[in-house]
Design a protein around this nucleic acid. Structure first.
Lengths: 103, 103
DNA sequence: GAGTTTACTACATAAACTGTAGCGTGTCCC
DNA sequence: GGGACACGCTACAGTTTATGTAGTAAACTC
């Protein structure tokens, strides 16, 4: 069986994924890594969360093989992480429409 | 300016959206509503969270116009919510691939 | 009017997050 | 060698947020 990332009581991958992504700062971290790798402190300053939690989330994302640490450049998305990001890119455009609808 | 859903300190819709979705149970609730409307208790039982938090999240989702309560059938996605869900559907397939990669 | 079903709330306990300070390692420079 | 710096990361007290159980109030059913 696949490594459980967390909370996948059901064992269904979609639930594990929703659980992983549905935790504070995780989506945001993936988003901030969309273009270039970022250093720990840089990431922390960008998102404005405590180092404790940034470190914790990066650990979970590394376990999930979505993020990796390259000593030379910093934290970056893995191939798997980039695939996931690609699925999320349409959100950017949609969010603008959504914001207008909320007016 | 658009109603802030929360934490959109920047005013950028994508950040507000990532913040809304990146809170425990929110993605899961949207996911559970993907097919039919669900009653409050039904939803609560399905996801296994406390009524306090289910109610709180539903309130936020209603403010964000992604979910609405139809007295006859229960909580359901709005047109906007369905659009968002459509963007998320590819996650289902991808999550299977991801789970295999974690083996 | 007693029993059900509904959405939702109160509240004490437990878990998670924050903010600040600081550790340990490596590297560069004199 | 020794000082300054950048790096990832950790400790910990204080605050915020979530949990779990119980229960409320309104609408319907018989």
């Amino acid at each position: 069986m696949a490594k459980r990332v967390r909370g996948s009581r059901t064992g269904r991958p979609i639930m594990a994924l929703l659980d992983l992504l549905g935790r504070r700062w995780v989506l945001r971290i993936v988003w901030e890594l969309r273009e270039q790798p970022k250093r720990f402190r840089e990431l922390q300053d960008l998102i404005g969360a405590s180092p404790t939690i940034v470190n914790g989330r990066l650990g979970e994302l590394r376990l999930a093989r979505l993020v990796e640490l390259d000593p030379d450049s910093g934290y970056r998305l893995t191939a798997l992480g980039k695939e996931l990001l690609r699925l999320f890119l349409p959100l950017h455009v949609w969010s603008e429409k959504w914001a207008k609808a909320l007016d």
